[in-house]
Design a protein around this nucleic acid. Structure first.
Length: 275
DNA sequence: TCGGCACCTGCCTA
DNA sequence: ATAGGCAGGTGCC
């Protein structure tokens, strides 16, 4: 049974709000509604259909494949029903550029401000929402307008990254069809995107279930749960990031990204971090 | 290739 | 109360 609380409050997505059993989320130029009492059904503002929860992955098979050891078995049991979301690529791309060296509360606040300032206002089920602005909208905004959303030094990254999408210098739809390494190399050409942010964008919106974002929490998780098992150093240089990523990909397999999500959820929860 | 450091902002802690 | 620390990193030297 799909669990919305675990899925949405696991750091993979930011612009969702809960109203009782119902959750509303901004999904690019659309608003989505899901209900814990019938979570498989995704209702959208536009009427468009989405496979938001990656039902096409065959979740039971994924769990069987990634359950390599007692740690992952425990995590999948404790957070049963958590899924990876298939997000809107551009919103995901901007979201994780904004996430760098920040925290969940700040990230959410900045993204809300960005949507409120530049996104179209719509009413859905009597509630007001701001859609996520597109690349054209953000790239044509001024630096000071973008900066007013509290992005700090990430302002110039968000502006240039939007321009790169608008101009076609980077094509997110094309990257869905590319292999992992090609997509990663393309993303890392964008200022403000390094290995970790690229992995997030790929895992959450570009169909790369073998992307495995490595951040300070994941290093902590690997250190605690797999002492000595992988090549984990205090700091991750470019080289060490790739070595560790390869080890994890090799060990956990083609759905390694699901493992990252479970381990991230588990280590954050055990440190009582808020979402 | 590696280590060290600066960096917006806002919340949290001592 | 208020300075200093820290946050899902990245770029530059």
């Amino acid at each position: 049974m799909l669990n919305l609380e675990h899925t949405i409050n696991s750091g993979q997505v930011f612009l969702w709000e809960r109203y009782g059993n119902k959750w509303y989320g901004i999904h690019g130029d659309d608003v989505l509604l899901v209900d814990q009492s019938n979570p498989e059904i995704v209702v959208s503002y536009s009427g468009e259909k989405y496979d938001l929860f990656r039902q096409s992955d065959n979740f039971n098979k994924v769990i069987r494949e990634i359950a390599k050891d007692v740690i992952i078995k425990e995590a999948t049991k404790r957070f049963a029903g958590m899924r990876l979301l298939r997000q809107d690529p551009f919103q995901c791309y901007i979201s994780f550029i904004v996430s760098a060296n920040s925290n969940i509360q700040n990230i959410r606040l900045s993204l809300y401000k960005l949507a409120k300032k530049f996104g179209k206002k719509v009413r859905f089920n009597g509630k007001e929402f701001f859609l996520f602005p597109d690349a054209k909208k953000i790239s044509s905004a001024s630096i000071s307008e973008i900066s007013s959303c509290g992005l700090g030094y990430r302002t110039k990254y968000v502006h240039a990254a939007s321009e790169a999408v608008r101009s076609g210098a980077i094509d997110l739809e094309l990257l869905k069809k590319s292999d992992y390494h090609t997509a990663r190399d393309e993303l890392c050409k964008i200022d403000g995107i390094g290995n970790k942010v690229a992995d997030c964008i790929m895992l959450f919106s570009l169909e790369k279930t073998d992307a495995f974002p490595l951040d300070r929490w994941m290093l902590r998780a690997l250190h605690n749960y797999y002492p000595g098992r992988f090549t984990v150093d205090e700091s991750l240089t470019e080289r060490r990031y790739h070595i560790l990523h390869d080890e994890l990909r090799e060990y956990f397999g083609a759905y390694a990204g699901y493992c990252q999500q479970f381990l991230f959820k588990m280590i954050r929860d055990s440190n009582q971090k808020r979402w």
